[in-house]
């Protein structure tokens, strides 16, 4: 209930204290500029974008549609290289995909021909692991039980609802114990109630399996509920337009979203999005944070 205290307030969770302590992030995006080559010339999507996320931090990236948010996730995952600027993970420059990253998308992309358990274990077949076959299976089962999917291990993805599939997809993203979790609108296709369930699941997962994460989202409530920092990107080409810290003083509950503080945060973010969309002048932004 009291999660939305003033920004300068004492950091009380583990993640907060690390935020204060570390100077350079576990995920460090430095001055990244990127343009796509199209038939009608280069299409710049990112311009001098910098984001630093400390270990254990969870950052939500919001911005207008088509502003290059998904490009950002592909850069962090090493699936593409920026035209200029650098992406660093754990003090190493990202030049190619690395197994220390887990990814989940809006589309859960489960393999229909595998059981849920085998889907979750997929990364362990690719990433080098010291776990025995049995330990791998135990780890997958543990994760599935964490997200409330006990009893569904042997089902096919087509037998599960959209929310359950997304839960399984989160397990797959975490099974190889990545340092970094990259989520690209993971709950975008779910209905509002299922989405709220999944938010709670995310908090549970984070408590049990700490990770550093970036999440792209279009849902401002989701951003302030899940993240400890919200980054608003400008319109294309995207650069950091606004950064809002969302400190928490205890485990978050859904009621936190219905407090005056939350309303004020949402208002500021909405205004920032309008500016990014070019629908409001730049000086219309809120003064808080």
């Amino acid at each position: 209930m009291n999660c939305c205290g003033p920004r300068e307030g004492p950091a009380s969770t583990k993640f907060e204290s690390i935020t204060a302590a570390s100077l350079s992030g576990l995920i460090d995006i430095r001055d990244v500029t990127h343009a796509y080559v199209t038939e009608s010339g280069p299409l710049p999507v990112l311009r001098d974008l910098s984001i630093a996320i400390p270990e254990g931090g969870f950052v939500a990236v919001v911005g207008p549609s088509g502003c290059g948010k998904s490009t950002l996730t592909r850069l962090i995952a090493g699936l593409m290289k920026p035209d200029s600027g650098e992406v660093w993970l754990h003090g190493e420059k990202v030049t190619s995909p690395r197994s220390t990253v887990g990814m989940a998308f809006q589309n859960p992309v489960l393999l229909e021909w595998r059981s849920i358990l085998k889907n979750v274990m997929l990364p362990l077949e690719i990433v080098p692991t010291t776990l025995t076959r049995r330990e791998q299976e135990e780890r997958a089962r543990k994760l599935l039980s964490l997200v409330g999917l006990d009893g569904f291990e042997d089902k096919r993805p087509s037998e599960l609802s959209g929310g359950m599939r997304q839960r399984a997809s989160l397990c797959r993203a975490l099974v190889h114990q990545p340092n970094v979790l990259v989520l690209d609108e993971p709950f975008g296709a779910l209905d509002a109630f299922t989405r709220e369930d999944l938010w709670m699941t995310m908090h549970n997962l984070k408590a049990e399996e700490p990770f550093t994460g970036v999440m792209i989202t279009h849902d401002l409530r989701e951003s302030i509920f899940l993240a400890d920092q919200v980054v608003v990107l400008s319109g294309r080409p995207a650069t950091t337009q606004h950064v809002m810290d969302v400190p928490s003083t205890g485990p978050r509950v859904l009621d936190d979203l219905y407090t005056p503080e939350a309303a004020e945060r949402l208002n500021i973010l909405r205004r920032q999005i309008e500016i990014a969309q070019g629908r409001a002048p730049a000086d219309a932004g809120g003064t808080v944070s």
């Binding site: 699936l79 995909p97 990253v101 998308f105 992309v109 797959r172």
Partner: peptide, 11 residues
Amino acid sequence: EYRDILRSLGA
């Protein structure tokens, strides 16, 4: 996304 899921793991 199917490709990305595996490629991001270095497959």
